[in-house]
């Protein structure tokens, strides 16, 4: 037991032991979700201290981007506005949650260096902090989602429970990616730049600003794009369109495989992470 009153740290004792210790870190971090939440809340409130709109500034800029791109591309692609604008709005908002969780994941351990080097707090607490921080931001941006769904009448057909399931799958996948890039960035300081570039690339390669129906010969390429599935699982139910079963299969598989691999890497590097910093 690694409760608040018993601390045990030992040398290398083989892979199985490392896995056990990583598992203990995971359990303890779940026991301290309140701490992760407080830290995340503090991050958000301190980032926007002194500003009147706070995180709503991002919401506002997203809203403007939605309007601009919505009107422009609807014209360019000759799609009706009431179809295209909500589509872009939801795309921008939910893609931002993924990008945020993954990009900020690079900073997870680096930012916590001070705390990690003098306490026995579980390392994964800081991963949940990053995830929670992005969920708090999402809660602000939901204004756009709700606004658009009501304005264009999609609320009648929106399937909120399925969208919630999609969001859970999205967070489950974004969090392992976040942990993975967090470990990698702690060790190699070039990683954050690479991750940022990849996420930017993904934004344009995924159907955020365009509709997949127009993609003729490249459908296979789309089916292999994880960000497409991640986005689709949340966006489609809200727009009242069904999600292909293959998407759920893809996402569950990706979450399980991703967490397995990442957890193994975490178990292997856990004792080293504090030294990377």
């Amino acid at each position: 037991m690694d409760t608040a009153t018993h601390m045990l740290r030992t040398g290398q004792r083989g892979t199985l032991f490392q896995l056990q210790m990583a598992g203990r870190d995971l359990r303890n971090s779940f026991g301290r979700l309140g701490l992760a939440w407080s830290l995340a809340w503090h991050d958000v409130s301190s980032r926007y201290r002194g500003s009147i709109l706070g995180p709503f500034w991002i919401t506002l800029s997203m809203g403007l981007m939605t309007l601009g791109i919505g009107f422009l591309y609807a014209n360019l692609f000759a799609i009706e506005l009431h179809i295209f604008l909500p589509y872009v709005a939801l795309g921008i908002v939910f893609f931002a949650v993924m990008t945020g969780t993954i990009n900020e994941g690079c900073d997870t351990f680096v930012q916590a260096a001070g705390i990690l080097s003098q306490t026995s707090l579980p390392m994964l607490t800081f991963v949940w902090r990053t995830v929670f921080r992005n969920l708090i931001n999402l809660a602000h941006h939901l204004v756009i989602v709700v606004g658009v769904l009501i304005f264009y009448g999609y609320w009648r057909t929106a399937d909120a429970p399925m969208a919630l399931l999609g969001l859970v799958l999205m967070v489950a996948n974004a969090s392992w990616l976040s942990l993975l890039v967090g470990i990698a960035s702690a060790r190699f300081r070039d990683i954050p730049q690479i991750v940022m570039s990849v996420m930017q690339f993904a934004l344009f390669m995924s159907p955020v600003f365009w509709k997949p129906g127009r993609l003729k010969d490249y459908q296979a390429f789309l089916d292999l794009n994880p960000f497409y599935h991640l986005l689709e699982a949340v966006r489609a139910p809200l727009l009242g369109t069904p999600v292909a079963p293959g998407t759920y299969l893809f996402l569950v598989g990706m979450a399980v495989a991703g967490w397995l691999v990442t957890f193994l890497i975490f178990a292997r590097t856990r004792r080293r992470i504090v030294h990377y910093l």
Partner: peptide, 9 residues
């Protein structure tokens, strides 16, 4: 508890 030892307990 911040550091994992390389050897020992």
């Amino acid at each position: 508890g911040a550091y994992e030892p390389d050897e020992g307990v």
